[in-house]
């Protein structure tokens, strides 16, 4: 399993990345939406397509919502599961992200257990890890 963790906070990238690595994910990182699109484009050359993107909302250059829309507009990345991981937590914001094409939504702060529960919902938990 492969994951791309997109957050302007490197502390948060490290936290999310560490949990995902514990579940056997190979993790790459990006500091904003544009960087993340670059990682996706560069990955194509080596057939590196993530199974999961964890996406912060508020980031410089390109925010998480714009990133979701950009990925959804590209059929090459149809298989990628998109999960917002953000402190934005009003109903309206969650609806907006889901409407743009995000599959799941994890609100900061979260525990490792909460991230694991979301992976289980998305069918991205490797076998041998109990839900």
């Amino acid at each position: 399993m492969r994951a791309l963790v997109i957050d302007d906070s490197r502390a948060m990238r490290r936290i999310v990345g560490t949990i995902l690595k514990d579940f056997g994910f190979e993790v790459r990182e990006a500091g904003d939406g544009q960087q993340a699109l670059d990682v996706l484009q560069e990955g194509k050359a080596e057939s590196w397509v993530p199974d999961l993107c964890c996406i912060d909302w508020n980031m410089p250059v390109m925010d998480g919502l714009q990133f979701v829309m950009a990925v959804r507009a590209n059929p090459e990345f149809r298989q990628v599961t998109l999960m917002m991981v953000t402190t934005e937590s009003e109903t309206g914001q969650i609806v907006k992200a889901l409407a743009a094409g995000a599959h799941e939504y994890l609100i900061k702060p979260f525990t490792a257990d909460a991230l694991r529960d979301k992976l289980a919902l998305l069918g991205l938990l490797p076998e041998g890890v109990s839900a």
Binding site: I94, A97, L98, A102, E104, Y105, L106, I107, P109, F110, T111, D113, A114, D117, K118, A120, L121
Partner: peptide, 9 residues
């Protein structure tokens, strides 16, 4: 924290 635990968005 409770709604974050495995409740689909």
């Amino acid at each position: 924290l409770e709604v974050n635990r495995g409740l689909p968005a």
